[in-house]
């Protein structure tokens, strides 16, 4: 990789870090809004690292496929587990409330 590409990637990463800290302190987008903003910036940073520092743009496509498959695995795992837990959580809460009520009596 050429020196300008290396330094450019690095400067981009530093800029995005400053941006995400700035958004955290200075801008209130609501709880979810700030989370989304932070994640978008983090993903931009991750893409920079992957594309240039880790040479994925110049590399064999198969290596990218491995990485993409792993990301897919993580997403699958988190999303399904998350969906299920958020589905049964109200029942758990209800049960705990009932138990608390019963204890009061």
């Amino acid at each position: 990789m050429s020196i300008p590409a290396l330094l450019g990637t690095f400067m981009g990463l530093i800029f995005l870090t400053a941006l995400t800290v700035g958004v955290h302190y200075g801008v209130d987008l609501g709880g979810k809004g700030n989370l989304i903003a932070a994640m978008v910036i983090a993903t931009m940073k991750a893409s920079l690292v992957l594309a240039f520092f880790m040479h994925l743009v110049f590399d064999k496509r198969y290596n990218f496929m491995i990485f993409a498959t792993s990301v897919l695995g993580v997403v699958l795992f988190i999303s399904i587990a998350f969906t299920d837990v958020s589905q049964y959580e109200p029942m758990v809460q209800q049960r705990q409330a009932d138990l608390a009520k019963a204890a009061e009596k």
Partner: peptide, 22 residues
């Protein structure tokens, strides 16, 4: 190897998202 590392950390990110989401 990096792919498996991602899944390895993925477990913790899963616990994180569930507890933060709830």
């Amino acid at each position: 190897f990096l792919g498996q590392e991602l899944l390895f950390f993925g477990g913790l990110f899963c616990a994180y998202s569930i507890y933060r989401g709830l």
